[in-house]
Amino acid sequence: MHPYLKFEQIGMSFRRGQMATEVLRDIDLVIDKGEFVSLIGHSGCGKSTLLNILGGLLQSSTGEVFLEGKVVDEPGPDRAIVFQNHSLLPWLTVYGNVAIAVDKVFGRTKSKEERHDWVMHNLELVQMAQAKDKRPHEVSGGMKQRVGIARALAMQPKVLLMDEPFGALDALTRAHLQDSVMEIHARLGNTVMMITHDVDEAVLLSDRVVMMTNGPSATIGEILKIDLPRPRRRLELATDAEYARCRAAVLEFLYARHRVPARAAA
């Protein structure tokens, strides 16, 4: 029996002329089906690199990623990505941006009507059905990211990858979208790997928080299991002792033990 998703001895070096910089080393991680895992760490610790290796956009220098026992070596819709800056195509409507993915991924297996229904179903899931004919520049940042999430969900990925999906949003919009993501995760049971550097976001959403040490040569420092019952409500959690403990543990890791050295941060 294979683990659902497995990182095995992943290492990554970037070469520039004679100089080789090791970004990641010795990453070993196993993720179960339906699990929501966050990657947290300071800027430059290689979180995005790790996500891009899983996404197939980068090839690791050493080690392999296995998804359902198969080696991951190219991008594909089974590992759909929600990009940090939404990455919607500006010449397509909200509908078109989801449809371009649905038509390609399900062009052979679904009829035209089925694909249309599937696009609308996913837009409804993120509450964007009413704006389907708008173009990306006509909707707000939070709405763009909703469409980005709909596009990724519509591919029915085995793992949903989210690269700091709410990083560019204001606090209220972010809270709103976090709630939406929790709801969708509860409904669909997706396996999710999310990059964040927001401690509250990581603790609120995740089953496990993977904490990365500082780069270069970053690796997994610690993994924290979040044993909070779902559905989680942010208001109730604000006074919850377990939530506070988890939050303190992540903060302690990030700011006491793995502080960014002043020089490296500059």
Partner: peptide, 14 residues
């Protein structure tokens, strides 16, 4: 052309 668009194209395997 932004790398993002190329990434999108790669993920949906155009």
């Amino acid at each position: 052309i932004p790398q993002d668009y190329r990434n999108v194209a790669a993920v949906i395997r155009l």
